Amino acid sequence: MSVVTTNQPLGTPTWIDLGIPDLDRAMTFYGAVFGWEFDIGPEEYGRYTMCLLRGKKVAALMANPDPGATEFWWNVYLATEDVDVTVARSRDAGAVVLGEPMDVMGEGRMAILRDPSGAQFGLWQGRAHVGCELVNEPGTLLRNDLVTATPGPARDFYTTVFDFTLDGNEDLPGLDFTFLRRPDGHEIGGIVGDPAAPESAWGTLFQVEDADAAVAAARAAGGTADNPTTMPYGRTADVTDPFGARFTVGAPAAS
Rank of each mutant, 00 (worst) to 15 (best):
5 T>C: 00
6 T>M: 05
8 Q>T: 10
8 Q>M: 06
9 P>C: 03
10 L>I: 05
11 G>H: 10
11 G>A: 02
13 P>C: 04
13 P>G: 02
16 I>Y: 06
18 L>Q: 08
19 G>T: 03
19 G>Y: 05
22 D>P: 09
26 A>L: 06
30 Y>H: 09
32 A>E: 07
33 V>D: 00
35 G>W: 06
36 W>F: 08
37 E>T: 15
37 E>C: 03
37 E>H: 09
38 F>N: 02
38 F>S: 06
40 I>T: 13
43 E>N: 09
45 Y>I: 13
48 Y>R: 05
48 Y>W: 07
51 C>M: 13
54 R>Q: 15
54 R>I: 04
57 K>S: 14
61 L>F: 15
62 M>L: 11
63 A>R: 14
65 P>F: 09
68 G>L: 11
69 A>L: 07
71 E>N: 11
75 N>P: 12
75 N>A: 15
75 N>T: 15
77 Y>L: 10
77 Y>T: 15
81 E>I: 14
84 D>L: 12
84 D>N: 14
89 R>D: 15
91 R>E: 10
91 R>F: 11
92 D>K: 15
92 D>I: 14
93 A>I: 14
93 A>R: 12
96 V>M: 08
102 M>G: 10
103 D>W: 08
107 E>T: 14
108 G>A: 04
114 R>S: 05
117 S>W: 08
121 F>N: 10
121 F>H: 14
122 G>L: 07
124 W>H: 06
126 G>W: 02
126 G>C: 01
132 C>V: 04
133 E>H: 08
135 V>T: 15
136 N>V: 11
137 E>F: 12
142 L>C: 01
145 D>N: 08
147 V>G: 13
148 T>D: 02
152 G>Y: 02
152 G>P: 07
152 G>T: 13
153 P>D: 00
153 P>G: 03
153 P>L: 06
154 A>N: 00
157 F>S: 05
158 Y>P: 06
163 D>K: 11
166 L>P: 13
166 L>H: 11
171 D>K: 12
173 P>M: 03
174 G>W: 00
176 D>E: 03
179 F>N: 08
179 F>A: 03
181 R>H: 14
183 P>K: 12
188 I>Q: 01
190 G>K: 05
191 I>E: 01
192 V>T: 09
192 V>P: 04
194 D>S: 11
195 P>Q: 02
198 P>S: 02
198 P>V: 12
201 A>E: 01
201 A>M: 13
201 A>P: 12
203 G>V: 04
203 G>M: 08
203 G>Q: 12
208 V>G: 07
209 E>L: 14
210 D>T: 04
211 A>K: 10
211 A>L: 08
212 D>R: 14
214 A>Y: 06
214 A>T: 12
216 A>G: 09
217 A>M: 13
217 A>Q: 07
217 A>G: 04
218 A>Y: 07
222 G>C: 03
226 D>V: 01
227 N>C: 02
227 N>K: 12
229 T>E: 01
230 T>E: 01
230 T>L: 01
231 M>N: 07
234 G>L: 04
236 T>D: 01
238 D>V: 15
242 P>W: 00
244 G>K: 05
246 R>Y: 00
247 F>S: 07
251 A>L: 12
253 A>C: 05
254 A>C: 00
254 A>T: 10
254 A>L: 10
254 A>R: 11
